[in-house]
Write a protein that binds this DNA or RNA. Structure first.
Length: 465
DNA sequence: ATGGGCTCCACTGTGCTGAT
DNA sequence: ATCAGCACAGTGGAGCCCAT
């Protein structure tokens, strides 16, 4: 039936009857009538009714087929079939406009098709700073359970207690740090990534001194984030700051967020306060070595403000200019690590992965290039701050929502599940060698991606920043 | 015409419960 | 322990609205 329908569509005969139907079921005495008007009327009505009937049948079949797919649908559907069905539905539009069922199936199909269609790489590469990925665990909103703030945990190596206060921390917040970190690097490098490391701190002691100094001139950063000229001047006088607008931010993350959503995300990210054991890359003569700094005081990652740029006459803000200053303890450590080349690369498709897949990659994989990585389930639970008490469901979640999407995206090759190990359930992640970064548009060398030279794409991107 | 914001709602990710 | 089923919140596409 569907094939016939298709043929009709392609011959643009949607509004005309199929020939074999013309006389079908027409009583003789009608046929004898010479009343052309009557014939036309009969003809049209009948055609419309029949097409409607057939349309509804096809609609029902598509809906049935779709509902029959096991979940998650995007991993069990055939993309070509979905596309064909979607095409059919689009052609039926004029007959079914306003039909609730029709609207739902269109929405469902288009979402699943979109999810199944591989992201094309728009060429955007972002850096991701190592300290953030290593030191900050995700703290997610839980429904019934009221989160205890500050969230705290013990750092294994140092035995120090770490804290996160005043908000949650998840995949989107890590993403913000990637993007603004990249902006900072490009700004410092005059539209190119800096060629030579330019550390801010020379040793642990200089950090401690700076930390106590910064805490002295705190905290004028009010909750008022909308800025006036004076506020902007104040930001521009700080040592490390960046500015950008919605358009640039959307391009960097390859996600479609409204200006309000972007502002709220930045605002929430800037308000979270940390007291951490933070990895700091120190250049000891010629060699870079990672040490950890035990923070004495709570710090935010950056100070944030914005100016409304384009406001529609009905009050809707369509574009904002954002200002970010890294003039906090953690902000300067972040800037220090970036300028000391303690970062890794991500491409824009990364931010479309399920949240936990993103966080998993950050916590366990991005900062090394081991080809085989054994991880106990307890380690994964701890690293991702997973909540599910039901171990069966939890391991299922790890496989379907984290490891399989990572394989699909090509970030890992495979994994092995070992239930009989000495230490209980264990996953072993398998990777071939890290994708050669020289294939990227940037010429990259070294473990942390020291950039030999910038490129045209980068320059173009940074215009207007 | 264009394009951002808003609403609606399907789908996913996660956690919980109860049966086996 | 394992599994299915349910609940619920977060995410994002379609389509509409509205201003430019």
């Amino acid at each position: 039936m569907i094939v016939q329908w298709n043929q009709q569509l392609h011959s643009k005969q949607l509004k005309l009857p199929r020939k074999r139907n013309i006389n079908h079921g027409v009583p003789m005495h009608y046929g004898q009538s010479n009343n052309i008007m009557y014939w036309n009327f009969f003809f049209k009505e009948r055609t419309k009714a029949m097409i409607n009937e057939e349309t509804l049948l096809i609609l029902a079949k598509i809906i049935d087929d779709y509902n029959a797919l096991p979940e998650p649908k995007y991993r069990n559907a055939n993309l070509d079939v979905l596309k064909r069905d979607y095409e059919l539905l689009m052609q039926m539009k004029e007959f079914l406009k306003g039909d609730i069922q029709y609207a739902h199936i269109i929405n469902a199909l288009s979402q699943t098709i979109n999810k199944m269609t591989p992201r094309n790489d728009n060429g955007w590469r972002s850096v991701t700073e190592r300290g953030i990925n290593k030191a900050i665990p995700p703290v997610v909103r839980k429904k019934k359970q009221v989160n205890q703030f500050p969230f705290e945990w013990i750092d294994k190596k140092s035995g120090e207690t770490c804290f996160i206060n005043n908000g949650y921390w998840g995949a989107r917040n890590y993403m913000v740090m990637d993007i603004i970190g990249y902006y900072l690097l490009l700004k410092e490098g005059k539209d190119l990534l800096p060629k030579e490391p330019a550390p801010i701190f020379s040793d642990m002691n200089s950090i401690a001194v700076r930390e106590s100094n910064i805490s002295g001139n705190n905290i004028t950063s009010s909750n008022q984030s909308s800025m006036n000229d004076q506020d902007i001047k104040r930001v521009e006088q700080t040592r490390y700051w960046v500015q950008f607008d919605d358009r640039e931010f959307r391009k960097s993350m390859s996600l479609d967020m409204s200006s309000n959503e972007i502002r709220d995300l930045l605002l929430e990210t800037s308000r979270v306060e940390f007291k951490l054991v933070f990895p700091v890359r120190m250049w000891n003569g010629k060699k870079a070595k990672e040490q950890t700094y035990n923070m004495n005081l709570f710090s935010r990652l950056f100070e944030f403000g914005y100016v409304d740029r384009d406001t529609r006459s009905d009050g809707v803000v369509q574009s904002r200019q954002y200002y970010i200053s890294f003039n906090t303890t953690l902000g300067e450590l972040f800037a220090h690590n970036l300028l000391s080349k303690s970062y890794d690369w991500l491409d824009n498709r990364f931010y479309s992965l399920p949240y936990n897949a993103q966080v998993f990659y950050r916590r366990f994989l991005v900062h090394n290039d081991y080809m085989s990585i054994p991880l106990k389930v307890e380690t994964i639970i701890e690293g991702l701050n997973l909540q599910d008490k039901n171990i069966t469901n939890l391991t299922g979640t790890i496989e379907t929502n984290i490891l399989k999407p990572l394989i699909e995206q090509g970030l890992i090759d495979s994994y092995e599940k070992d239930t009989e190990g000495l230490y209980g359930l264990k996953f072993t992640i398998k990777r071939s060698k890290k994708e050669n970064p020289k294939e990227n548009h940037l010429a990259v060398t070294g473990d942390a991606g020291s950039v030999k030279e910038g490129c045209r794409v980068c320059k173009e991107r940074m215009q207007g920043l």
